[in-house]
């Protein structure tokens, strides 16, 4: 045992471990900004990530071009048949248009967003592991972004910034198991909390919890942000209820929520930098 403590490698390992534990303990405290070291590492890696992302996109587009040519002949044949169905499609589109207008009116999203300050950003990297649903965007504090600012797309709520560097920011999505959002059911105005777990997160879904047993929630109901909690502004579309399940204890129920945003194909986001009250 004494030999072990006189071994310089063991002592070095022990010192590094203690140092890392101290850093971890300090990190868990609520901190306002990243360290210069973290910012530097982020600044070095983000250009690589941007390069690889654009290269991947280029390869995907290039390979897609050839597969498209293969399919063109078949599609041409199919399209000739589809012309006959076009009149029917137009009628359906009219219906979708009316429904879209109704939803927009109900959520008043368009009018509300005009008063907000939005900064567009590109997603340049996803989280390095399989456990979290977070991603990095190509804008940072140099673009007036800050921690706890909400991130949206034209579809709805994405998440919020939890860490920021000069030219990058990390966003935690609402389907991450560590995220929770104050929500309200648009039709009934009942308040709930949107969160997720490891299983739902991997399926691109989340759940709406703390819904009273007497609340008349139904599949297809729309969930939007309640504005409670201080991060997300009121009235941003979160998603649509897919199914309702009873909680194990039986005193409340929860709903499986299909987010309005497709997190698999997310590429451009908007960060809300200014709120109407300001």
């Amino acid at each position: 045992m004494r030999e072990l403590f006189t071994n310089k490698y063991f002592i070095l390992l022990l010192v590094i471990t203690i140092l890392l534990l101290v850093i971890t303990a300090l990190y868990t405290a609520d901190r306002k900004s990243v360290t210069y070291g973290e910012d530097l590492v982020g600044a070095i890696i983000t250009p690589f990530q941007a390069l690889f992302t654009s290269a991947t996109e280029g390869i995907r587009n290039f390979s897609g071009y050839f597969s498209d040519i293969k399919e063109l002949r078949e599609k041409n044949k199919e399209m000739a048949e589809q012309i006959n169905e076009l009149s029917n499609t137009v009628r359906k589109l009219e219906q979708y248009k009316l429904e879209n207008e109704r939803l927009r009116g109900m959520l008043a999203l368009k009018d509300t967003m005009e008063d907000y300050g939005l900064v567009a950003a590109e997603v340049i990297a996803k989280d390095s592991g399989n456990w979290f649903n977070s991603f990095t965007i190509n804008k940072g504090s140099a673009d007036n972004l800050a921690v706890r600012q909400a991130v949206i797309t034209s579809g709805g709520l994405v998440g919020h910034i939890y860490e920021i560097g000069t030219n990058w920011a990390k966003v935690i999505s609402i389907i991450d198991a560590n995220s929770s959002v104050g929500a309200v059911i648009a039709r009934t105005r009942d308040i709930a909390v949107v969160e997720s777990d490891v299983e739902l997160q991997n399926q691109g879904l989340c759940k709406m919890t703390y819904i009273g047993k007497n609340v008349s929630i139904m599949s297809g109901d729309i969930a939007e942000t309640s504005g409670l909690g201080g991060i997300y502004p009121k009235g941003i579309l979160i998603g649509k209820v897919r199914e309702i399940r009873p909680e194990t204890a039986g005193i409340s129920q929860y709903a499986i929520l299909e987010p309005a945003v497709d997190f698999e194909r997310i590429s451009t986001v908007f960060v809300i930098t200014r709120y109407p009250e300001e």
Partner: peptide, 18 residues
């Protein structure tokens, strides 16, 4: 690097990978 670039408590990946 994983701790800096990823989400989660800083230091966990460092200790595990070390």
């Amino acid at each position: 690097i994983t701790d800096v670039m990823g989400y989660g408590t800083f230091g966990v990946n460092s200790i595990l990978m070390l």
